[in-house]
Each structure stands twice: as C-alpha cells, then as structure tokens.
C-alpha cells in the first residue's frame, strides 16, 4: 500500500506536490504560501462565510444566532455549544466561537484578531434601562503574544424608535447607543430593543480593531 502511494506521489513530483505525513504543509508548500502572504500577493486565508443551513434555521428560537461580520459582509449562523456562569458560547460550522453575557459580546475565538475576554458586568442592565454609565475591560492579544487589557468608560443613551428588518420580517424597536472611550480604543455599539418586552432583538457590537463590528440577530 505504501509502495503504491509512493509511486503515485512520484508521478506527481516535478510539480510542487509533496506526499506523506512528513510533507504535509511541507517545505515547498509552506515556502510558496509564505512568499505569497509576505508579498501581499495572497492574503492569509480568512475563515470563509457559510450559507445558512436549513437545519440551523429549524433548530428553533433561542438556539441559533445569525452573525454578520460587517466589514466583510460575511454572514454565518451560530449554534449554542455551552454555558458558563451566564456566558453562552456559540459556534459557526467553520469553527469560530462567540461568547455573550446577557447578549453582550465577551469573547471570540478563531478570528484573525480575537476578543480574548471582556468584563461587561452592568452593561446589559444599562442598555435595557436605556441610560447610564458603564465600565468595560476588553482584552486582546498583541503581535508578541501578550494580553493587552483596554479599560473603557461607556455612556448609554436612547436614540429612539426605529423599524428594523430581521429574518422574522420588519418590526418596531427602540435604538440604544453605547459610546465607549478609552486610552487605546473608542467605539459606539448599537442595540435595538423589542418595543414590548425590552429584549435585545438586534445589536452591532465591536469585536476587535482589525475585525470591526459584528451584527447579531438571535433567531
């Protein structure tokens, strides 16, 4: 069997194809890829957006999040994979996870710049109240594998009623903005609250400086 594999491999050699476990991502493949990325001819592969599987849509309310990476326009459904102390973790089919505490983003994994963790106690309550001042700490990895924790002070203000369109169709919502300011980061998150129940039915929240914002729609 191995001999036959070798023979097949040999037939392809001369191109850049390499075979065998020790050659997975071997010298030539790596070198080509590295040169491509270094010269900017090829960008490092981002996780591809996936289509909405009907199974995800069928999973029922509360079990699927639709998330759009606004900067890339990529949309993906996420399914619930765990809960730790009020923080729910969701996962895309491509292996990216997002974690939310009371609908407020606290972590991501698998993006090119992850939100490694966030302290957001009190933020959800202020959003629902439509007013208040909150303190956040967001942490990120830097280029040298060190955690940079960014402290932010945020002001929550109610903007007013807006009609938003979700998968469920158009609906009336109250828009609330949260403007955050810190020594290294400055951004405004937007939330749309259900006019009746006061739940967050849509939000746009910052993930990381080089990733930008995500739009979150619970299904």
């Amino acid at each position: 069997m191995m001999i036959r594999n070798v023979a097949i491999c040999m037939a392809f050699l001369g191109g850049t194809i390499a075979c065998g476990p020790l050659n997975k991502g071997g010298m030539s493949a790596r070198a080509l890829e590295t040169v491509g990325v270094m010269t900017g001819l090829r960008k490092a592969a981002p996780p591809a957006p996936s289509a909405i599987p009907t199974a995800a849509l069928a999973a029922g309310p509360g079990n699927v999040l639709m998330v759009t990476l606004l900067r890339r326009g990529a949309v993906a459904p996420l399914t619930r994979v765990g809960e730790n102390n009020g923080v729910v973790t969701w996962r895309t089919a491509k292996g990216v996870t997002l974690s939310f505490q009371d609908d407020i983003l606290t972590a991501s994994r698998g993006l090119n710049e992850d939100l490694m963790g966030a302290d957001v106690d009190g933020v959800a309550a202020a959003i629902r109240a439509g007013t208040g001042t909150t303190q956040r700490v967001h942490s990120f990895l830097d280029s040298e594998d060190q955690i940079k924790a960014r402290a932010l002070t945020c002001t929550v203000t109610t903007i007013g009623p807006e009609t938003i369109t979700t998968v469920a169709g158009p609906s009336e919502a109250i828009k609330v903005d949260e403007t955050c300011d810190g020594s290294a980061l400055r951004f405004t998150n937007n939330y749309w609250l259900d006019a009746i129940g006061g739940n967050i039915v849509q939000s746009q929240q910052v993930l990381a400086p080089s990733v930008g914002f995500i739009r979150v729609n619970p299904l």
């Binding site: 994994r109 090119n112 490694m116 990895l141």
Partner: peptide, 12 residues
C-alpha cells in the same frame, strides 16, 4: 497581520 492566529476555536 494575523494578531491572534486563525486556528479554529477550542472547546469551551
């Protein structure tokens, strides 16, 4: 450029 790396997420 890819600050945190794009390897897929771990299990929580």
């Amino acid at each position: 450029a890819v600050v945190s790396g794009v390897e897929t997420a771990p299990v929580p």
